[in-house]
């Protein structure tokens, strides 16, 4: 019996060790209590932050954040590739604001957009306006409830 307990513990440790580190690849991702986009938000993780992810389950990873919080992140929010950060900006380990975090060495970024703005190639006024339209989780829940929309399963 003891041997079995030890082996089970070893297996659990092996599973934990197998959890690969993954990086958040979107500006901000919500860690949910269950594997659903409508589930309660446990915490949010910013771009570039590393989380420990266990086996993918129907599009969702059970994750543990650096500060020990557990929950679920949709696979579209995570990247297996490490996202390198510029020095002097965010550090995933400390959870510093990631406003200035970028994928080091990658183009098609804010600097390029800024050049298009200053050159007068494109006008981003309405792009900014539409991007600023926010919808809260509470509004989505209320909208669905009011509209008698059933389900909610992913």
């Amino acid at each position: 019996m003891k041997i079995r307990t030890v082996l089970v513990l070893l297996l659990i440790s092996a599973e934990v060790a197998l959890a690969p580190p993954m990086s958040v690849q979107v500006r901000s991702a919500k860690v949910r209590a269950t594997a659903s986009q409508l589930a309660t938000v446990v915490t949010t993780v910013d771009y570039g932050v590393v989380v420990e992810a266990r086996a993918l389950d129907k599009g969702w990873y059970p994750v543990t954040t650096r500060d020990g919080k557990t929950g679920w992140l949709h696979e579209s929010a995570l990247s297996k590739k490490p996202i390198a950060m510029r020095s002097g900006t965010s550090d995933a380990a400390t959870g510093v604001s990631s406003d200035e975090v970028a994928i080091a060495g990658k183009g098609f970024n804010e600097q390029v957009e800024q050049k298009l703005r200053t050159d007068g190639t494109f006008d981003f006024t309405w792009v900014d306006k539409m991007s600023a339209i926010t919808v809260t989780e509470e509004q989505i829940q209320a909208f669905r409830q009011e509209g008698h929309l059933p389900g909610g399963a992913q």
Binding site: V50, R66, K81, P82, A84, M85, S87, A104
Partner: peptide, 30 residues
């Protein structure tokens, strides 16, 4: 095997180790 493959795909083991530590210097990234 999985870890090694993932790390090599992700621009080398050094980058992955640095990333797991949560930080890469500019020189290292370069």
């Amino acid at each position: 095997a999985v870890r090694l493959t993932a790390e090599s795909e992700a621009a080398g083991r050094g980058a992955a180790r640095g990333q797991r530590a949560g930080f890469l210097t500019e020189d290292r990234v370069d």
